[in-house]
Design a protein around this nucleic acid. Structure first.
Lengths: 221, 221
DNA sequence: CATCCTATAATCGTATACGATTTTATCGCA
DNA sequence: TGCGATAAAATCGTATACGATTATAGGATG
């Protein structure tokens, strides 16, 4: 998750995670370790360490002597993930707003700017910057255990947003909400940032529910 | 966490976790991978996979080219972990009580019986059975993401309970509370089991706070 | 023609061996 | 005597190679 991954395994975690979120590796199909390792130009051992980490993140599942598979997306998991975020994020983001220093405030502002320009240019990797922005609003709370949990939840969320919401032109409204959130967060208005967070997550979940229903009736793949 | 770990790495995760909770490997001291691997009669590769998993569980920390260390216990982490449990467990345990089948009810009852006999005989591994009992009350909720988070939180909790509370004769009262909880849980009394859970976690946290203060003034190590 | 069994091939999991980085101990110097 | 630099030792991280397990394809039989 960190920008400068230290060893090779950590770098692979980020790269493989990106592939999973990207959809490059399909769900339920066994991951050929040798092939993937060769494709990435590394050996199997660091790749296995990365896969083990991603399994604990909830992106992969493993069976005995049958390797790893990407866990499929389900509506119930989406509901669970967003319910957890609603339980944890509002309070955490309020505390973070209170404790954030100027450097952390600057970092959050910068990330939103980058997210904006990416959205305007229709670039790739919007999801990653969206996640980074949200996490930047949460990190200053100084609760490492909570933050780790929220990191995981945002990764899981991103799969659903990217698959079901990003193809649609839904980013404009989200960006307006992001601006409002950042403003309240910078002003250390704890009530307001908590309320806006509830709304933001809730609206995303609503859109997701609608789209999940629609998609389940529509395309087979 | 599972009873029958599949591959060697999974088995090592459980064994090394037990050592950490046991206090066999001291905090802040670098873990010699070769030595530990030799001591356990395995090679370095599966051990590294296990250590990587335990790092994500929050028990270990790693630095570049300096290996893994056991994370030290801090009062702030204890506060955070118990705050998270208070936020997540009551609702989850109520749902689990509603959804639990007869087999799962039997499993929970059995675990409490085993926990009782272990406590009476003053045996080892009380902490592990305590954790298993609590998780058995939570598993039937059918929320895998939440359950994984709670598994982690219980592991982290166990370190503090074992170090600060278990040496004292504090298990009797906890066992009475466990009986009450199981009764309400089996009766599917959602209100009551949720309330009892809040009380149980709260009391444990209170005891822990007291002991953490006392210990910080008392012994240096 | 379907089903079961067997043999083959592929893949997973683990052990062994090697280079790169870091820590530590020793020596020289202020 | 204390501090800094250098060399040696130890350890971490990675690549390569091997055995064990599993899935699959082919053939024989009912």
């Amino acid at each position: 998750m960190s920008i400068a991954a230290r060893n090779l395994s950590e770098q692979l975690v980020d790269q493989v995670r990106a592939r999973i979120l990207n959809g490059t590796v399909a769900p339920d199909r066994p991951i050929r370790q040798d092939a993937l390792a060769a494709e990435m130009g590394v050996s199997k051992i660091p790749l296995r360490e990365a896969l083990a980490r991603l399994e604990q993140e909830g992106l992969l599942a493993s069976q005995a002597n049958r390797g790893f598979t990407v866990r499929p997306l389900t509506a119930t998991e989406a509901e669970e993930v967003y319910a957890l975020r609603l339980k944890l994020e509002p309070e955490t983001i309020a505390i973070a707003a209170r404790l954030a220093g100027t450097a952390e405030q600057q970092a959050a502002s910068d990330l939103l700017d980058q997210l904006d320009s990416l959205t305007d240019s229709g670039g790739e990797g919007v999801g990653a910057f969206n996640r980074a922005f949200h996490l930047a609003l949460l990190r200053p709370a100084g609760r490492p255990v909570t933050f780790t949990i929220l990191e995981r939840l945002h990764v899981l969320s991103e799969r659903y947003v990217r698959k079901h919401l990003e193809p649609l032109g839904r980013n404009e409204r989200a960006n307006e909400e992001h601006r409002d959130m950042l403003q309240a967060w910078l002003a250390r208005d704890e009530r307001k940032i908590a309320a806006l967070t509830v709304v933001h997550i809730g609206k995303t979940l609503d859109d997701l529910r609608l789209q999940l229903q629609t998609d389940s009736k529509g395309p087979p793949g």
